[in-house]
Design a protein around this nucleic acid. Structure first.
Lengths: 297, 297
DNA sequence: TAGGGCTATCTCAAAAAAAGATAGTAGCGA
DNA sequence: TCGCTACTATCTTTTTTTGAGATAGCCCTA
């Protein structure tokens, strides 16, 4: 069975005429006859009654219902990829907790304004988990810290974060090795790239296995830091956004450790849906606007 | 876009291999490549990632969802007509009130036992209305009294009813013209063929315009007859089935007026769905069994 | 009864699909 | 690192299907 045959059949059923159906679908009457005939042969049923008026038999009416479902689904599928100007469907984005909280909102707002028909789904998680999601096709794109070593992926440097040390008391210089060793560190669960930075930081101070507590949410983590539970390392912007809510203090870290780039990672552009392509556009636009601020900070 | 292309695409997505998909659908690998390539060109999107493992891109995964819907609907439509042995779908039957009450139950039971996957819908109404429904394709078949004059329809004499006069008092002979003229007659609403018989009966007694009350249900009608409201004319079997519930009495009518055949009417067999074809089989079987009783009565 | 509008059928050319053959590529193990 | 294997892409040929035109037959209407 051909989709084209179903289209012609529907046109005949609606117009009640082979000639009209042929004109409507830009072909000739003999082809309509041939398609309908083939359909009827395939299904072993007479679909149309040709006595004077052409009208569907009850078998034909039954087919109409299914043909509508089939053709509607087909049209939707095509418009998913060929939607003229306005994308539709679904966009699944993976991002780190900090990125989601601080960087995504304005971009998502702009995107939603541009593409109101796209369902947006955000999955948050640590970098390693996000990469896994992307590789498994469970998300369409991710924002992760650090370049993705995997080949065949589209990379775009999205945000430059500067990590700072966060603690519950004012700090003017780096805590001593001894202090670091006896303090706890609070980090996102295994896989978070910021956590790697914490371990790098500790290592640079000759401290190996500080106690690290794992957290799943930013609020919980900052709350515990404020309560004097220990230190954490977070992007400056994230901390500043929450600083008024918690009694926390910060300290600059050495540049080599502090600077972390967040990349937008997606498969090759050839496999992008219009929804994803449009998101990449929105993202690029937003970055051009923000770029001066980022470099100035 | 071709249904075949979607089938191949799904097979590739499932098996993760062009060769496997080709074998599964009994074709060769080069054709799978060609179909997928054409699909990708039509949609302007890369659907499959060929790096080592063949796996759908996120665009491909999006298409998978729609392809499933399309192919499922298609398969259902085909099985509607090509269902091997067991029909499915829907069967809409139109029948007169009396036929529905008296004749259909055993046939429907047998049919449902044979074809449990078919949804049965019964519409009751007077003959003229049923014919209209059939002509409009709102039912698949009807049981009506008298031959349908319309051409191009399949006719099967299903039941022979013998009409009798029903009244509230014992009758040994036909009421006088005077009695008929002053009595009311109760009938189904306009279009019922039994009603025509009533008018024929009255005419044969030289009575022209007796009062005729219209009813929509058998129970209401018999109840009113029992209450002495007037006479009615109904199939003997129908009356006998209800006689114990109502205080009603009957009288044989002249054969020329009394005998009414109920016909099974459907469009030409070429346009029958398997559900309808199977119902016709069931009906024929039931009639063969009942025939001796019918002729004996 | 003639004419207009409709569908079925036939035919031919063009397009498309199927199948086979071959070349190129990635992954795997020695 | 070198084949070996299994896979996909491409090219070619053959077969099938499709599209469009021409024509014949049918039904309805005037």
């Amino acid at each position: 069975m051909q989709l084209k045959s179903l289209r012609l059949f529907m046109a005949v059923a609606e117009t009640g005429s082979f000639v009209a159906a042929a004109n409507q679908l830009h072909t000739v009457q003999s082809n309509v006859t041939a398609h309908i005939k083939k359909l009827e042969e395939e299904l072993g049923v007479q679909l149309l009654q040709r006595a004077g008026r052409v009208r569907p038999t009850s078998a034909g009416l039954a087919l109409v219902e299914y043909a509508e479902r089939i053709l509607t689904a087909h049209d939707e599928a095509v418009s998913l990829f060929k939607g003229q100007e306005k994308a539709c469907g679904r966009l699944r984005i993976g991002a780190m907790e900090t990125t989601t909280a601080l960087r995504l909102p304005p971009i998502l707002a702009a995107y939603h304004a541009a593409q109101p028909d796209v369902d947006i789904q955000i999955k948050t998680g640590p970098t390693a988990e996000l990469v896994e999601l992307l590789l498994n096709g469970q998300v369409d794109c991710v924002f992760v810290a650090g370049r993705l070593e995997h080949g065949r992926y589209h990379l775009l440097k999205a945000f430059s974060e500067r990590l700072i040390l966060v603690g519950s008391t004012p700090m003017t210089k780096m805590p001593s090795s001894q202090a670091l060793l006896t303090s706890a560190f609070l980090a996102f669960r295994q896989g978070c790239s910021y956590r790697q930075r914490i371990e790098l930081l500790l290592a640079s101070y000759g401290v190996n296995a500080g106690r690290i507590f794992e957290f799943g949410s930013l609020d919980a983590m900052l709350g515990c830091v404020a309560a004097g539970m220990g230190y954490t390392v977070l992007p400056r912007g994230t901390v500043e956004a929450h600083q008024h809510r918690f009694g926390i203090h910060t300290l600059e870290l050495p540049t080599s450790i502090a600077n972390v780039d967040t990349y937008f990672v997606a498969p090759e552009p050839e496999s992008w849906t219009p929804a994803l392509a449009s998101f990449a556009d929105t993202l690029r636009d937003a970055l051009v606007v923000d770029e001066p601020q980022l470099t100035a900070s």
